[in-house]
Structure formats: structure tokens, C-alpha cells
């Protein structure tokens, strides 16, 4: 392994993040606060409790997941699309690095940024509601795996995208709806029976359910299933990336 290269890519990518640190920090703080004002205060005053948990607290895991997923995807997809767009990818392709090292550098940096934002949201949320985390280690593990797997997905999107519109398209048209419909702000059990079945085809349900279990010890689907879902998703993304570099799809003519 060329660890020096991995570290160099990682550092270079993180530099972009630190250049806009204030913006990176302020926007999740602001949007989280808005969510609490809208969902927590307005809706929460009517819903009060879900599965014995204060509604304000109940939405915290979903809120974190929503941001972490979209941030991981957008950071990773932009991170690899940009060198393609401005042509600096020539250097990656001609360097003595293999696909794993490139992925570790780019995806690692994107996952770190997403993790940072997840932590900021968690901290902001704890200013609004009382939070006790039932399974802290599982919480961290779910968060890390989500950052990683969605950054991998973002990396694939960045390589696939041929222009900036496509870069925005997948997160906007696929990921955001899946997350909103994945039980971020409600429990699956609140849905009509038929929708409870349909919603099980949404992979994000398993992630949010597992993450919420780590917080409150209650889940829509078994935790083991959640772990398997996210593990399987990570492996699938890795396999696709391995294939991309093996065939040079969209990066090497």
C-alpha cells in the first residue's frame, strides 16, 4: 500500500473543506435549528410522542442520517468529479497508486466531512432536546458505516456523471426522497399496512431504524437486518468501484 499517497489525497481534499469551514459548520447548525422550529415545535405540539419518545428527540437520528447521507454523497461525488472536470485526474491515473488507495483518500475525506456534520447536528440537537443514547458504540458504528457507504456511492456517482446536472440529479431525485420516505420523521408503524410493506424495499429504512435503535432501543426492523443491509450496501459499492477501475469506465479511454 502507498499510504503516503492515501494521506496526500486525504489532506488535499480536506483542505477544500477547511477553506470553507465556517460555511461547512454554519449551514448544518442553521438547518437543524430550522427543523426543530418547524417539526419539533409546530408538529411536535400535536404529535407529542412516538413510541414513547418525545417527538423532538425522535426525529434526531433521522435528521442526522438525512444530512450525513446527502453530505457524504455530495462531497464524494464532487471530490472525484472535479478532477475529471478540470483535467487534474491525469495525475491520479499516472501515479503509482491503485484503485483502493484512490478510493481511501477521496472517500475517506468525504466520509470525514459527513461525520463532522453529523456530529455538529447531534450537538445542535442536544441544545433543543434531552438526548440519552442507549447504545453509544452502536450509534458511532452506524454513523461511521453510513458515512462510508454513502461516500462510496457518491464516488460512483461522481465518476458516472458527465456534467454538473447529473451530479446533482441522483442525490436530488433518488436519495432525498428515499431518506424522507425512509422514516426519518415518523415511525413505519404509523403508516397504513400496505405502505408498511412497500417501505421495506427502501434500503434507507434499515439504516434509520438501526440508527434510531442505537439512540432509543426501539426499532422498526431488527437491528441485525439493519447491520446486514448497510454492510451489504458497502460491499456492493466497493465491488462497483473495483469494476470501474478495472475497466477504466468513464475515467480511462
Amino acid at each position: 500500500m502507498n499510504w503516503t499517497a492515501v494521506a496526500s489525497i486525504y489532506r488535499f481534499e480536506m483542505a477544500r473543506f477547511f477553506r470553507t469551514l465556517m460555511q461547512s459548520f454554519m449551514s448544518p447548525v442553521l438547518s437543524t435549528s430550522l427543523y426543530f422550529v418547524v417539526f419539533g415545535a409546530a408538529i411536535g405540539s400535536r404529535i407529542d410522542q412516538v413510541e414513547g419518545i418525545d417527538y423532538g428527540a425522535f426525529i434526531v437520528p433521522g435528521l442526522i442520517m438525512l444530512s450525513v447521507m446527502t453530505q457524504a454523497i455530495s462531497n464524494a461525488s464532487f471530490g472525484i468529479y472535479f478532477p475529471k472536470f478540470i483535467g487534474t485526474i491525469y495525475e491520479l491515473l499516472s501515479a503509482p497508486v491503485n484503485f483502493l488507495e484512490i478510493v481511501l483518500g477521496y472517500v475517506g475525506a468525504a466520509a470525514t466531512k459527513a461525520l463532522f456534520i453529523g456530529v455538529v447536528i447531534l450537538a445542535t440537537a442536544s441544545l433543543f432536546v434531552d438526548l440519552t443514547i442507549a447504545h453509544p458504540i452502536a450509534m458511532v458504528l452506524f454513523m461511521l458505516l453510513t458515512c462510508l457507504s454513502f461516500a462510496l456511492l457518491g464516488f460512483i456517482i461522481g465518476i458516472w456523471a458527465g456534467n454538473f446536472e447529473q451530479l446533482q440529479l441522483v442525490p436530488l431525485m433518488i436519495v432525498t426522497p428515499l431518506v424522507f420516505l425512509g422514516g426519518s420523521f415518523y415511525s413505519i408503524s404509523m403508516l397504513p399496512p400496505i405502505w408498511q410493506k412497500i417501505t421495506l424495499f427502501n434500503p434507507v429504512v434499515y439504516l434509520i431504524s438501526g440508527f434510531r435503535w442505537a439512540f432509543f432501543d426501539t426499532a422498526d426492523v431488527p437491528v441485525g437486518l439493519s447491520l446486514m443491509a448497510i454492510g451489504g450496501f458497502t460491499v456492493a459499492c466497493m465491488a462497483v468501484i473495483w469494476w470501474i477501475f478495472k475497466t477504466g469506465w468513464r475515467i480511462r479511454s
Binding site: N2, T4, A5, S8, E91, A95, V97
Partner: peptide, 9 residues
């Protein structure tokens, strides 16, 4: 500096 690191130096 990035280029040097990328080449593992």
C-alpha cells in the same frame, strides 16, 4: 507538495 506525496515520496 501533493504531487510528491501522491507518488509515495
Amino acid at each position: 507538495r501533493f504531487s510528491r506525496g501522491l507518488f509515495g515520496k
